[in-house]
């Protein structure tokens, strides 16, 4: 298959996935090995569900699928190992660059803070740090864009769709009830 534009091999289109067919990208073999090991572990786990008790056991399909995973993964490892290494790509520049690491840390931090801190403060912090880091524009711009979009998202999800995001340190429920009362009082 011909690739119409060079951006394709980063995988931003799913139908023609990333990767390079005829060469091995940095870390690709390691990834394949991890998948093979994980498949083996899952197969063992699937065997533990019910063993070979019956064709209809809850472990039957899981065992079949994890076996398929293991076979495919081992074949991928063998195939990948035979490919020549790609030239001109490094793990730290092309696969997991600084920006991706920064966002990995940011998202991890978000996950940890969401429950104790609550949705609004955590999200505001995340957006401000992320947008400032990426855009390198002024604090005023960053804060306006972040808070503005956060308010829109909050209104849609919390008010219209009544999704109860963790409130954390913000007394959201009291706040909303207050406005509701005021609104109903005015009617």
């Amino acid at each position: 298959m011909t690739h119409p534009d060079t951006e394709h091999h980063d995988g931003t289109s799913d139908a023609t996935p990333g990767g390079v067919e005829a060469a091995r990208r940095p870390g690709e073999l390691g990834f394949a090995i991890v998948l093979a090991l994980a498949s083996a572990a899952l197969l063992y786990n699937a065997y533990g569900i019910a063993g070979f008790e019956a064709l209809s056991s809850p472990g039957a399909i899981p065992m079949a699928t994890t076996l398929a995973m293991l076979i495919a993964a081992v074949a991928i490892v063998v195939k990948t190992a035979r490919l020549p290494k790609i030239t001109g790509e490094t793990l730290s520049r092309d696969i997991f660059p600084t920006a991706a690491i920064v966002f990995a840390v940011l998202l991890l931090g978000y996950g940890l803070l969401l429950q104790p801190f609550g949705f609004l403060p955590t999200s505001a912090l995340f957006l401000i740090v992320a947008i400032k880091y990426l855009s390198k524009r002024s604090w005023l711009y960053t804060a306006t864009v972040s808070i503005g979009s956060l308010v829109v998202i909050w209104l849609i999800f919390r008010i219209v769709f009544t999704v109860l995001m963790p409130a954390g340190i913000m007394p959201e429920a009291e706040f909303i009830q207050f406005f509701r009362n005021m609104f109903q009082g005015a009617k």
Partner: peptide
């Protein structure tokens, strides 16, 4: 007044 009300509601709630 609204802002004041909202703030006092928050205080009350907390």
């Amino acid at each position: 007044k609204t802002v004041f009300g909202a703030v006092s509601a928050l205080v009350l709630g907390m």
